[in-house]
Amino acid sequence: MSTIPLLKLPILVITNILESMGLIDRFLLAHVSQRMKRIIKNSARVRNHRFLVFFNQRAGFRFETMDRKTLPEDFIVEDDDAADMNYIEKLLRKPFKLSMSKTNRQILTIYWDDVFIGMKTICEEITELFSVPVNGVCFDLNGVDYHLESITNFINSLNPRPESVRVDGEKCDFQQYKYVLENIKSSNNLACHAEPKEHLEMGDISLKFEKLYIKSGKWIKLDHLKSIEANEIVIDHSNFTDQILKNLFRNLKGLLHSKTKKLEIYVYRHVDIDTVMDDFDADEDDESRWSFPMDNGENFIVDFNDDPILRRFSILLDKKEDNQED
């Protein structure tokens, strides 16, 4: 095996070498000795990366560069039932495996008796070693099963708050869907792509995010809008009828939270704009654009847009303060 005495090089050269390595290589090197861990922690930076946590069919972490010029690297945590116990060497006292994906991405798989505890431990190791916060979390409601409460607590415990949380889950259980919406508190943006197999009564729900995307918006009623405290709200697959839209515009100030600057609603049917906007104190800027001046100087712009390819109709409400338009 070809060798080179790394620690006999000047510290700035060592830093250059460490910063030229992939993050999995650096992570493994940090587990050679306490001294290497200190050097990696104190000397080498991690920049221009997004650190993502995922709980899907597999659970793990992904580092991807902002510019996507280099391939992402994955740390996977798997149940130790899947481990080949012939591995002699251990990492964090657990068996592990290094492999390459078909696209030449390096993957480190660590086997843990409890995947969730493994995820927490590795997350703490990574954030401590690389001084990086978790930027985003994504999970699939169909893949996390009984860990849902632990995952929600894990997300809520992250400090600083992750920029975004994405929830997937095709034909997921409505109660789990509801649990997530009710309990994820600490994220700037929530993108809920999950689609419950049935829509039951949601009841009162309080949601606080900077941006909120709800793909399966059938459950959202006008009353729910008041309790959504978000700068931007996107409701896809809404069940709002023309009459409900009319009621929304009629009582915009009463129905939207004061923080909401933008509300986008997608319905998959034709919207009769004339019916919706009939008998309104609104200025028609053009065929599809209306403005609602409010008493407090705010101005709501409403854009109707028919998308014949996706067969959907979008209604965009954009709040402009002091009558300022972009």
């Binding site: 095996m1 060798t3 080179i4 790394l6 620690l7 090197l29 587990h31 050679v32 000795s33 060497e89």
Partner: peptide
Amino acid sequence: PAQLRRVYLL
């Protein structure tokens, strides 16, 4: 890690 120790003489 064991191989890295040998490669970099750590």
